Simulated assay, not measured.
Amino acid sequence: MITVHHLNKSRSKRVIWLLEELDMPYTLVKHQRDPNTNLAPESLKAVHPLAKAPIIVDDNVTLCESGAIMEYILNKSCTEQLRPIQNTQEYYQYLEWLHFAEGSLALPVISTLLMGMEKRSGASPLDHYIAKEIALDFTYIDNTLSKQTYFAGDNFTAADIMMTIILEIAGTLQLIDNKAHIERYLETVQQRPAYQLATSQG
Results as ranks from 00 to 15, higher is better:
103 G>Q: 02
101 A>Y: 00
27 T>L: 03
15 V>S: 00
40 A>V: 06
12 S>N: 10
73 I>V: 11
90 E>F: 10
85 I>W: 09
49 P>L: 08
43 S>M: 13
60 N>D: 14
17 W>L: 07
46 A>K: 15
85 I>E: 13
31 H>I: 06
80 E>I: 10
53 A>F: 01
8 N>D: 15
110 I>W: 01
103 G>W: 01
92 Y>F: 11
53 A>L: 00
90 E>A: 13
67 G>H: 10
90 E>C: 08
40 A>F: 03
78 C>T: 13
12 S>M: 06
35 P>V: 11
32 Q>A: 13
39 L>M: 15
103 G>K: 00
9 K>W: 15
28 L>S: 03
84 P>K: 08
81 Q>D: 13
98 L>S: 06
93 Q>P: 07
65 E>T: 01
45 K>C: 01
7 L>W: 05
111 S>R: 15
24 M>C: 12
19 L>P: 06
18 L>N: 00
97 W>Q: 04
11 R>G: 03
6 H>P: 03
28 L>E: 00
83 R>G: 09
87 N>T: 08
82 L>Y: 03
58 D>C: 06
88 T>H: 10
94 Y>V: 14
60 N>V: 04
44 L>V: 13
56 I>L: 05
14 R>K: 14
54 P>G: 08
10 S>A: 11
30 K>N: 12
106 A>G: 00
10 S>E: 05
46 A>H: 11
72 Y>N: 04
42 E>P: 15
98 L>D: 02
76 K>E: 12
74 L>H: 08
49 P>S: 11
66 S>C: 14
15 V>M: 02
96 E>V: 14
11 R>Y: 03
73 I>Y: 05
34 D>Q: 10
85 I>C: 10
40 A>K: 05
104 S>R: 07
75 N>A: 13
17 W>T: 08
51 A>M: 01
42 E>A: 14
39 L>K: 14
21 E>G: 07
72 Y>G: 05
81 Q>T: 10
17 W>G: 05
106 A>N: 07
82 L>E: 02
23 D>S: 11
91 Y>N: 04
15 V>R: 02
26 Y>T: 07
11 R>E: 00
27 T>S: 02
101 A>H: 00
109 V>A: 04
16 I>S: 07
79 T>I: 08
62 T>I: 05
43 S>R: 15
31 H>V: 04
56 I>A: 04
55 I>Y: 03
102 E>D: 07
103 G>V: 01
52 K>D: 02
72 Y>L: 02
85 I>F: 13
32 Q>G: 07
28 L>I: 03
43 S>K: 12
41 P>D: 03
80 E>L: 07
36 N>V: 13
86 Q>C: 13
9 K>L: 14
36 N>L: 15
56 I>W: 02
35 P>A: 13
41 P>A: 00
86 Q>I: 13
26 Y>N: 02
71 E>C: 08
82 L>R: 04
76 K>V: 08
89 Q>K: 11
44 L>N: 12
104 S>E: 13
59 D>S: 08
86 Q>N: 11
18 L>Y: 00
19 L>G: 01
36 N>A: 15
87 N>H: 11
34 D>P: 10
69 I>K: 05
100 F>N: 12
12 S>L: 07
73 I>P: 06
28 L>Y: 01
71 E>V: 08
66 S>F: 06
29 V>F: 09
42 E>Y: 12
64 C>R: 14
70 M>H: 14
